[in-house]
Simulated scan of single mutants.
Amino acid sequence: MKLDLQNIPRRKDLSKEEFLQEYFIPKKPVVIEDLTKNWPAYKKWSFEYFREKAGEVVVPLYDGKPAKGRQNSHGVAKKIPFKEYIDILEQGPTDLRMFFFNLLKNCPELLEDFEYPDLGVKFFKKLPVLFVGGEGSKVVMHYDMDLANNFHFNFVGEKKVILYPPDQTGLIYKVPYSIVSMEIIDMDDPDLEKYPALAQAKGFETRLKHGDALYIPSHWWHFIKYETASLSMTLRSLPKSPKQIAEVLNNLLFMRNYDNLMRKLKGQKWIDHKNEIAIKRTHKNAGIE
């Protein structure tokens, strides 16, 4: 058994009308290979460039260890100057990652290196964010709490991306009161005997190289493995429908706070309980005894 994954389409010279009709409106992912070719970032963005431009900025780093006991999810592992983090990346594999780093707030001059694409989409311009990871680091399968449409631009290194649409949620071991699948599952090499429902789920995959832009539709699940040390940027388009806005508010105001409260009250028992429910629900959905 193996995961049922098809390649994400790759396009060049994609017009605004084609993007909207073929991908954005039907909510289908696509890799646009030439969207960044005229940006200064296409040629300039490298680890050395960021060492020069943002080396003194202190950045929060996260590791691949799941939160345990009474820890809040997604706690910061350490904070160091960006240039020291780049040194770590260049020394070899590491699970240290930097994510959702606000360029506008921390390095405003870098905003001159890119432009918001003319794709017929309204971007949330207050939050261009940087994602950096070491060779071999992985991001657990999840969807974004704010249900944004993501445009993910890769500039340094290579990364593997696996996507699942929302209608496959019942088969990928979603953890209750969260936006993640079970963190113990390595989607790069999952144990399909232990987690057999994954073999039934139908997803997509791609490998992003220099200059590639990946459109990830709202509410789509994504797993990322950094094949090499990599640097990417995401531009976001926020949801507009009342139903989606209500779900975002529930995620931010209730679900996340309730989960963290229960972690503090019950510790590891709460995490184990949620994982048990995830397995039971998923196997029921998949018709597995």
Rank of each mutant, 00 (worst) to 15 (best):
Y215M: 14
A246Y: 09
Y226Q: 06
E193P: 01
I185F: 06
P190D: 00
V175I: 14
L249M: 10
V248A: 05
D212N: 15
A197C: 02
S218E: 10
L198V: 05
Y177T: 09
S232R: 06
V180E: 02
L252E: 12
A201T: 02
W220C: 05
L231G: 09
D188I: 02
R256V: 10
G211Q: 03
S241F: 14
A213G: 01
R236H: 04
I216V: 11
L231H: 06
P176E: 00
K225P: 04
L252G: 02
L192N: 07
K240E: 14
S237N: 13
D186E: 13
P176T: 04
P217W: 04
M182I: 14
K209Y: 05
K202H: 13
Q244E: 13
S241K: 15
D189I: 11
K243G: 04
P242I: 11
Y177R: 09
L192I: 14
K240V: 07
H222A: 03
S218Q: 15
S232P: 12
N251P: 02
V248S: 03
K243Y: 14
F254N: 08
N250A: 14
L238N: 08
R236D: 06
T234F: 06
T206R: 01
H222T: 06
G203Y: 05
A229I: 07
W220G: 05
I216K: 05
N250Q: 14
E183T: 09
L192V: 08
L171C: 01
A246H: 08
L231P: 07
P176N: 02
Y215V: 06
I216S: 07
D189W: 01
I184G: 00
L231E: 03
L249F: 12
Q200A: 02
K174V: 10
Y177H: 06
W220T: 01
S218R: 13
H210K: 15
R207S: 06
N250W: 15
N250T: 14
S237Q: 12
Y215S: 13
W220V: 07
L249H: 11
K225Q: 14
M233C: 14
G203T: 05
P196G: 13
M182Y: 00
